[in-house]
Design a protein around this nucleic acid. Structure first.
Length: 1057
RNA sequence: GCGGGAGUGCCGGAGCGGUCAAACGGGAUAGGCUUAGGACCUAUUAGCUUAGUGCUUACGCAGGUUCGAGUCCUGUCUCCCGCACCA
């Protein structure tokens, strides 16, 4: 038995000593074979690591032996929470903890004999690495792709940090599985949404990626095409004209038409004294003649705004809105006296007005010749209203149709739908409880209930709220919107099933054709109107296709056509537009933890957030941090916190958030190309040579996060002019898991197997081959050591075959056969290995090894034997590199097997006929065995093999020649009867139908009678030895045995005595 | 619900329309070699049957195409994985 453990260690040292796997950019074709780099955990390498690394290592070694310059690097994803948690727990520095683990892992990787170029090792936690994270951040910041905003974010209370959307699984933290909370915080984001469309489109370019990963990414980006539609809120408008105005000579004329077209109600009084307006007269008139309620919106124009404010001061109820078009607060501007200067009181109680109006909008004309724009700004400030500066059709909004006024006067709720075809069936509207308009739309009557509902829903965490079987709850707001096509008044509800962060946070509910809406409508007794035929809406929502009904002029269209037609119609009414929605959100990269890349931003009291100067990078992590477990250590590190503003030089404060560690891994594959470059993020030439990665190998758990982020980075860096390609990874292999007891191996489940246990018992090669042989790389496999011994035996067999002395003759009659088999193997092994079918390759190698061993015993020719052994040794090299290296050496070579070329097949040596001849004798042997079994003859006295008569060979040939044309045995029979074979007519009648019906009874390869005889002669000795009796071989024509006529081509008659 | 993948012997797993009762490996059984063996070698491992190397059935289930189907088509069931109140 070979001492694997001993020579494995020896070769590992040799490889290291001679830097065998070091690569440089050279003229050879390149190949970049990359493993997802590991997190250096304290547990070291587990079997899953061993598996994935062995997969990529086989491939790297294989491609190297195909003559490529192979980049096969390894590094460590070394920032992350466990290090910091260890620091808190054991009072060690996260860096020391991390580097200890790295040392441990490297040692274990070396023990596996992996062929990494360790000169390119990197660890993301070193300032040499993370300074480039910061540099990239600054570049993205310059481009507007990194930004800070306040938003509700996912907060993991146990990790004490925020998480990106991708990092929340089932409402739980991907790392610690705790339930994630929602918090509102100022955070840094990368604008990955800017690339949503390209990230989606380019998935189609990823031909070498598994379908399911692509699907997962598509789902995550979640594109849907639909239409945004504005539903006007039902309100009672009061339109107040200005000085010299009338309802028909001002913008109100157009506004009235607009309101009419929307089905909205309004009052538009002709105010007394239009030419000589007096406050009291006008205000009283309005108060007496107009009805006000909490649903009232006053739209004033010019002096009408002043009247409106005065009216509101006097109202004893609260109204919904005030829209002031070209409003003002004092009559003296442009030094021009107005006729109403003295008839109005120019003091306003702005606070009181504010308190009595829900929403205030101020429209100011940039081109106003009567009221300067400053007046509008003043008003907006005094009333905390929304200021909208526009260019009006005519100065001072004097046109009778002012579309901007129409647009802004009417408040509406924007919904998003992918089913505009069902709009005629929209019988209510639902807003997310967080919708900014939710409370504003709530009438007094419903206020208490709505508030209760909102707080109840918002208290629930995302996970609970979006659970599948969650019951739909909702509450009526008291307000209505107008369905823009049916003009019907439909109620506005808030409900838990509508999400604020998708679409517009509001939906039109079409209960007849949406399951959720149906459920909701049934529960709250809301009308269900069928607009697509084909279902039975009394029973359930019909979501299928059909023709439109109850849809006005769109009736009878197919719903697919209607999507377009109705969208167009809505666009022509300027009620909405077609848009695209994505589920993808911007990537939140802020983390409130120490052990990560500091975000290179400084907050200055006067300049705001200022990026750190490039020359001041890296912003290093401080040494004086205290790991108490309370909050972010950076917040308490004085040496870190205090900085000078890069702009003005004054004292300032550093950003204490660090970056998500997924930032580190989004570009490390680029850094490997020139890992030691101190001047640049990466060398352009090196990246141009090595990138993209031809083969990337890692776990499915990164299907979205890491792989999406890396794709985004590649595109962003491309747009920064740093890269020339669009996608980083050409081929992706997601390896399967190793399970034990049906569960993934993990420390917490206590079902881990330490690779070192196996290595110490059998050696690394056995482990590698076993793992590779047990299942296809992309499939899961259940760990079981039964069988590992079989692998060990196989490797030992190879070892013995190559090293045991032999006294083979120079040539033998078996040479051609073994050579044919060998060359066939070389081709098959190469194709299979290229396709990651490593278990097939090994399978074939085992098979051939057995053949070789068998023929060695029979006295195979030395030349063929030696070249076979050499080929096996080389072909085995990617799978069992140590053994291969050892045997290569034993064979007298001074080079490294690892650097040799994979054997080349000589296709000319592949000879099916020779193979068949040889295997034919094997078949005969099996037939003998079964006859012995049947006859219960234990020890035969003599055996006779009678080769089929010559004419049967001709027959078989004739039949085969005709099978292409016909399958009718009658026809074939007739034809053959006309030939010389006719004299065997009696036999033909039996044989032909049988053979035509089952052509498999005829051998695939045609041997001639004498060739069969020769093949048998050659194997005669072997048979005699095995069965311990004389074997006689004759041909049917010369045999007197009655059984002679049973023989068929490929199946000689057998007589046992 | 949507999307992806898979169903073949005791097990892992082959099978790109014909040589498939099913590669290769494991396990089990029997035998050989041996002082012994967890080493090596051989046979058996769906059923039936026979002085003749055969026959029958089988590849989740049901149909279809074909002279011929694990292999192509249709429907259906089961399992695994991912996403999911996404409007």
């Amino acid at each position: 038995m070979a001492n694997f453990v001993e020579f494995e260690r020896r070769w590992q040292q040799e490889w290291r000593k001679h830097k065998v796997f070091h690569v440089i950019e050279d003229k050879k074709k390149k190949y970049y074979c990359l493993d997802m780099f590991p997190y250096p955990s304290g547990a070291g390498l587990h079997m899953g690591h061993a598996r994935t690394y062995s997969i990529s290592d086989v491939y790297a070694r294989f491609m190297r032996m195909q003559g490529y310059s192979v980049l096969h690097p390894m590094g460590f994803d070394a920032f992350g929470l466990p290090a910091e948690n260890a620091a808190i727990k054991n009072n060690v520095n996260p860096r020391d903890w991390t580097f200890n683990n790295i040392t441990l892992m490297k040692q274990q990787q070396d023990e596996l004999g992996l062929s990494y170029d360790w000169d390119r090792e990197l660890a993301t936690c070193t300032p040499e690495y993370y300074r480039w994270n910061q540099w990239i951040f600054l570049k993205l910041y310059e481009k507007g792709l990194a930004y800070r905003k306040n938003s509700p974010v996912n907060w993991c209370p146990s990790c004490q940090t925020v998480l990106a959307n991708e990092q929340v699984e089932d409402g739980k933290c991907w790392r610690c599985k705790n339930i994630v909370e929602t918090k509102s915080l100022d955070q840094w984001f990368f604008k990955i949404t800017e690339y949503a469309e390209e990230l989606l489109q380019d998935i189609d370019k990823l031909e070498g990626w598994p379908e399911r990963v692509k699907t997962m990414q598509k789902n995550w980006i979640g594109k849907s095409e639909g239409t945004e539609i504005n539903f006007p809120v039902e309100s009672n408008y009061v339109l107040l004209h200005g000085y010299n105005g009338r309802p028909d000579n001002t913008l109100h004329a157009g506004l009235r038409d607009h309101l009419d077209s929307l089905g909205l109600k309004y009052q538009c009084p002709v105010m007394p004294g239009a030419g000589q307006p007096k406050e009291e007269e006008q205000v009283n008139f309005v108060l007496e003649n107009c009805k006000f309620d909490e649903n009232t919106i006053i739209v004033g124009h010019s002096l009408g705004c002043v009247v409106a404010m005065k009216v509101i001061e006097k109202l004893d109820i609260k109204i919904k809105g005030l829209v002031m078009v070209a409003g003002f607060t004092q009559p003296k501007f442009k030094d021009k006296e107005r006729p109403f200067t003295d008839t109005f009181n120019w003091n306003f109680d702005f606070e009181k007005i504010k308190g009595k109006v829900g929403t205030i909008k101020i429209l100011s004309g940039i081109n106003d010749d009567a009221v300067p724009i400053e007046e509008g700004r003043k008003l907006a400030q005094a009333l905390s209203g929304e200021l909208i500066e526009v260019t009006s059709e005519k100065p001072h909004f004097r046109s009778t149709n002012e579309p901007t006024v129409n647009l802004h006067a009417v408040s509406s709720i924007k919904i998003f739908t992918t089913r505009p075809d069902t709009i005629f069936g929209a019988t209510f509207m639902v807003l997310a409880p967080e919708h900014p308009e939710a409370l504003k739309l709530t009438t007094k009557e419903y206020e208490a209930e709505v508030k209760k509902f909102i707080s109840k829903v918002l208290l629930e965490d995302k996970f609970t709220r979006t659970a599948e079987d969650k019951e739909k709850h909702g509450v009526f707001t008291g307000s209505f919107v107008i369905n823009p096509l049916t003009k019907e008044k439909i109620p506005i509800y808030l409900a838990n099933f509508v999400l604020m962060d998708y679409g517009t946070g509001a939906i039109m509910a079409v209960p007849a054709h949406d399951k959720r809406d149906y459920e909701f409508a049934t529960k709250y007794k809301l009308p269900i109107n069928e607009v697509i035929s084909g279902g039975d809406i009394d029973k359930e929502a019909y979501v299928g296709d059909g023709k439109l009904v109850n849809s006005g002029k769109f009736n009878n269209l197919s719903n697919e056509e209607a999507i377009d037609k109705i969208s167009e119609h809505i666009e022509s009414l300027t009620m909405g537009k077609r848009t695209t929605q994505y589920k993808l959100r911007d990537w939140l990269i802020s983390r409130q933890r120490y052990w990560g890349t500091p975000i290179p931003i400084i907050y200055c009291k006067s300049c705001g957030p200022v990026p750190v100067n490039e020359k001041d990078l890296p912003v290093k992590l401080p040494e004086d941090a205290q790991f108490t477990g309370e909050g972010n250590p950076l917040d308490k590190s004085a040496s870190f916190l205090n900085a000078k503003c890069p702009k003005c030089g004054h004292d300032a404060r550093r950003e204490t958030d660090t970056m998500d560690t997924f930032v580190d891994s989004s570009w490390y594959f680029l850094r490997y190309c020139s890992p030691k470059n101190e001047k640049e993020v990466f060398s352009k030439e090196a990246v141009e040579y090595w990138m993209p990665v031809e083969q990337y190998i890692g776990g499915i758990e990164h299907a979205i996060m890491h792989l999406l982020y890396s794709r985004f980075f590649t595109k962003a860096l491309r747009d920064l002019g740093l890269l020339k390609f669009d996608e980083p990874f050409v081929n992706l292999l997601t390896h399967g898991m190793i399970t034990m007891g049906g569960e993934v191996m993990s420390k917490s489940k206590g079902n881990v197997v330490d690779p070192r246990e196996v290595i110490s018992k059998y050696g690394a090669d056995t482990l590698l081959v076993f793992v590779l042989f047990s299942a296809l790389p992309n499939k899961d496999f259940e760990w079981s050591e039964t069988g590992i011994n079989g692998i060990h035996k196989f490797l030992n067999k190879v070892h013995a075959l190559a090293t045991e002395p032999n006294e083979l003759p120079a040539h033998s009659e078996f040479d051609a056969y073994v050579e044919s088999k060998l060359n066939r193997l070389i081709i098959k092994a190469k194709t299979d290995t290229l396709e990651f079918k490593f278990n097939y390759t090994l399978n074939s190698l085992m098979e051939f090894t057995s053949i070789l061993q068998k023929y060695k015993e029979r006295g195979l020719g030395k030349r063929v034997f030696d070249s076979s052994v050499k080929s096996i040794v080389l072909m085995l090299c990617p799978f069992a590199p140590h053994l291969s290296e050892e045997l290569w050496h034993d064979l007298g070579n001074k080079t490294f097997a690892s650097l040799e070329l994979w054997p080349n097949a000589d296709e000319g040596k592949i000879d099916e006929k020779i193979e068949y001849e040889e295997e034919f004798a094997l078949g005969v042997r099996e037939d003998i065995l079964s006859i012995l079994e049947l006859t219960k003859i234990r020890q035969p006295q003599e055996m006779k093999l009678i080769v089929s008569p010559e004419w049967k060979y001709t027959l078989v040939k004739e039949i085969k020649a005709r099978l292409g044309q016909t399958r009718d045995s009658g026809t074939i029979m007739k034809e053959i009867m006309q030939s010389d074979l006719k004299k065997y007519g009696q036999d033909l009648v039996k044989l032909i139908p049988k053979l035509v019906q089952d052509p498999s009874k005829m051998p695939l390869i045609d041997l001639k009678q004498d060739e069969e005889t020769k093949s048998l002669e050659r194997n005669k000795k072997v048979l005699e030895e095995e069965f311990k009796c004389p074997v006689i071989i004759e041909i049917a024509e010369e045999s007197r045995d009655a059984k002679a006529r049973n023989g068929m081509p490929g199946k000689p008659a057998i007589v046992v005595k």
